[in-house]
């Protein structure tokens, strides 16, 4: 069986070289349909190069070197061979197999032996393989005669892989040697250690504060820590209050701004005046005693804007 397959391959080898470009071309389905309809007519044989022809002929000669007559017989058989019809009927991968056939046919026409018997044999063999009911083999289907060898090799690979993984794991374990992940809670030992450390710190801090307080010689009752806390509270409160007051002021400023917009009449001088004694526009007698109001009909006279240095300077410039 295996030997048969091999010979088949040998025969197909030269043909396969030719086949490749053709497959690329046959992407459009119309062409493919044409091929199916009349393989002989459509298949315009592409001329292989002289060199290739020579090669094919040589191979053919070699193949039939011992039985010259058979080759002739085969050549005669070709045109009306039943194989092609057979292949047309077949549906699985018909395009490819058809191409094969054509190729073979053409090859034969150029004086190269067509391997009719081989084709049938291949078909039979292939069908046989496909029909085969496979046992549940972990290695999967193996066509080779050396089934045992393959299995052995695979097993070896597997073992090697396993070994590699193991060594890697070992290495990792060695790297993590001694490395522990602490628990999420404080166990008794940790608590004890923290206690020891705390005691040490407290002892030291007490000694330090004692020494430094003695050094200062001031109020020993006022220990440093509490003083710090108290003063901190006080400063925090002041800053807090300051913040509140600031906010209030800002609010006032905002409202006053609003008011100003409402009373367009107020000019900067009025504001200035208002800042001195409350806000003038809010006074009841503001409109009555409107001497301070700016008269927009008049031009700004230097006398009217005595208080404002900026404006006066500008006007003088003009």
């Amino acid at each position: 069986m295996a030997a048969e397959l091999q010979t088949l391959e040998a025969a197909a080898a030269p043909a396969s070289r030719k086949r490749k470009p053709k497959h690329k071309k046959s992407k459009n389905p119309s062409k493919r349909a044409k091929q199916k309809a009349s393989p002989m007519a459509a298949a315009k044989p592409r001329q292989p190069s002289k060199k290739m022809k020579k090669l094919f002929r040589k191979r053919a000669r070699e193949y039939h070197s011992d039985e010259e007559d058979d080759g002739d017989v085969e050549r005669e058989e070709e045109p009306s061979s039943g194989d092609e019809e057979d292949f047309d009927v077949r549906d699985d991968g018909s395009g490819g197999s058809e191409g094969d056939d054509e190729e073979d046919g053409r090859g034969a026409q150029h004086g190269i032996t067509r391997f009719v018997g081989g084709c049938r044999a291949f078909r039979v063999a292939f069908m046989k393989i496909m029909k085969k009911h496979l046992p549940d083999d972990p290695l999967g289907p193996i066509l080779s005669a050396h089934k045992k060898l393959v299995a052995e090799k695979l097993a070896e690979d597997d073992a090697e892989h396993k070994k590699k993984g193991e060594t890697k794991k070992e290495k990792q374990l060695a790297a993590e040697n001694g490395h522990i992940k602490p628990a999420n809670f404080l166990d008794a030992k940790e608590k004890f250690l923290i206690g020891v450390a705390t005691k040490g710190v407290v002892k030291l801090f007490n000694a330090v504060s004692k020494a430094q307080n003695a050094q200062i010689g001031l109020n020993p009752s006022k220990s440093k820590d509490t003083k710090g806390v108290e003063s901190k509270i006080v400063t925090c409160f002041f800053s807090f209050i300051h913040f509140v007051v600031l906010a209030k002021r800002r609010k006032q400023a905002f409202f006053s701004e609003l008011q100003k917009k409402n009373t367009q009449v107020s000019n900067s001088r009025n504001d200035e005046k208002g800042n001195v004694t409350g806000w003038a526009p809010l006074c009841d007698s503001y409109m009555l005693t409107s001497s301070k109001l700016k008269d927009w009909d008049k031009m700004a006279e230097p006398a009217a804007v005595v208080g404002q240095e900026h404006e006066s300077s500008e006007s003088s410039d003009e």
């Binding site: 001694g178 490395h179 522990i180 992940k181 602490p182 999420n184």
Partner: peptide, 15 residues
């Protein structure tokens, strides 16, 4: 060094 835990491990173990 019998056992050790990194600073990151300890930080991870704390709430």
């Amino acid at each position: 060094i019998h056992e050790y835990a990194l600073a990151a491990d300890i930080a991870r173990s704390q709430a």
